[in-house]
Amino acid sequence: MEEERRVSCIVCPLSCVGDVTIADGKVKTVAEFGCPRGEAYAREEVIAPKRMLTTTVRVSGGQLPLLPVISRQLLPKDKIISCARCLANVTVSAPIKEGDVILSDILKLGVDIVASRDLDAI
């Protein structure tokens, strides 16, 4: 089975749109991207797309009711929603420092979720 996918490149402001054909889970051809960086992005984007996750968790006893958090590394794109759902059930206690691990090894994906700011207690 051969599949053709259109991919918008996000590497630079030129925003090339190219075509990638995939067969048996492997990239067969990459066309219409203006540069090798775009081709490399497109290859990864069709086979194993990754994204950073930024969201919030609840805080008890803090200056604010929410703490912004970020994944320390990229996560598989198809796991982003389940990671966000998982973090919706987390509550942490203030005070918190930027970089504190809020949830380690989220969904056993090998990535830690960390605080992206300091938050003092009331």
């Binding site: 912004p68 970020i70 930027e98 700011r117």
Partner: peptide, 9 residues
């Protein structure tokens, strides 16, 4: 690539 709060901090 920082978050907004991270840049502010």
């Amino acid at each position: 690539e920082l978050t907004g709060p991270g840049y502010a901090l």
